[in-house]
Design a protein around this nucleic acid. Structure first.
Lengths: 186, 186
DNA sequence: TTCATATTTGAACACACACTCTAATTTGAA
DNA sequence: TTCAAATTAGAGTGTGTGTTCAAATATGAA
């Protein structure tokens, strides 16, 4: 990957992979499909990537990173901020959001690396949500705030999943409803 | 399927499919594997089932039906009943639950029939949840009850998804927490 | 018992998949 | 300009998949 051509080809492949996973899921995404969509031949693909798995991991990493737009973790965000950011991610970053959902749902059979990565990511999100909840509801114990956060984050993912099925699904409405429920039933 | 032999073969195939999905997941489950586990040859399989897809749908459907608290649809089920049934389905039939979610979200490249079936099923679930909510909270408008039901069902699916990633995830705790939130913030 | 039909047999088919290989072409630092 | 290395071309490999088929056999209503 020392020449410009190689870098451009790499980008085309990654972009094609992203939209294919978004549209077809992990199983439906094939090397042939990727190559066609990217306007590239298998030889070029395998010159830049070792395997199908490798491209997919690369794309998934991008998707996971994109979920959390504020890795600085300043500790100033409210629960509503966090949820709004998630809503925006789902609605605006369609392809990446779909990749994220498909990975969450797929068994990730052999690739336990993906599974671990996803779990770690999830835990990080839960603790940020828990901190925000604790900040707004100091009377809650840490354990209870964490439990609430776990319920909320999983539920939000469920809403994202449904959005993949039904493009008209009102993500913002349901996500905010969840937040309201989470905070009001304290 | 008029002879006893046929019915028995069908049972063997369904049972083999169930345990293969549990052991190997959706991808690892092949016709060859099913036939070997069931002690049956491909010809017999295709005499009774049209496709691999059909067996899998049958198995998943059976699992869902087996847990329905009100199969006759008499309108006697409470929201707690419905959620408990869902919890049981996820916890006891985890692998099938995963397949269920997976099919629902999968791209279904050619067969959009499957996707439609899943969407209809989801709508049916939402309306049963909505009816139960309306029964317990007559002061809510139908639209609001439906909206609550949509949030709840999607959220429950999110919890099921997370259970795939983390086997220790306490499905019952979070599901009941959701119900409590749904009903208490009315 | 008869016999239409349900069921089983087991090889074979067509195809899609991830991946490889060799030769040609292009790149850009020296 | 030179030239080693990066990139592309594109046919080809091997394997596993879901599915089909014609022939043989088993079933049970009449």
């Amino acid at each position: 990957m020392r020449y410009k051509a190689g870098r451009e080809t790499r980008d085309k492949i990654l972009s094609a992979t992203r939209s294919l996973i978004a549209k077809l899921g992990l199983e439906g995404t094939t090397i042939k499909g990727i190559c066609e969509a990217a306007g590239v031949l298998p030889g070029s693909f395998y010159n830049l990537f070792d395997s199908k798995e490798q491209v997919i991991i690369t794309v998934v990493r991008q998707a996971i990173d994109a979920v959390d737009p504020d890795p600085e973790h300043l500790g100033t965000d409210t629960l509503a901020d966090l949820v709004d950011a998630y809503i925006e991610f789902i609605v605006e970053q369609g392809d990446l959001a779909r990749v994220y959902v498909r990975i969450a749902v797929s068994g990730t059979k052999d690739n336990s690396d993906l599974r671990g990565r996803m779990l770690r990511h999830h835990e990080g999100r839960v603790s940020r949500f828990a901190e925000a909840i604790a900040r707004e509801h100091p009377e809650l114990s840490d354990a209870l705030a964490t439990q609430r956060a776990e319920t909320l984050v999983s539920s939000l993912n469920g809403i994202a999943v449904h959005r993949v099925l039904d493009a008209d699904f009102d993500v913002a409405l349901h996500a905010r409803s969840l937040v309201h429920m989470t905070l009001s039933s304290a």
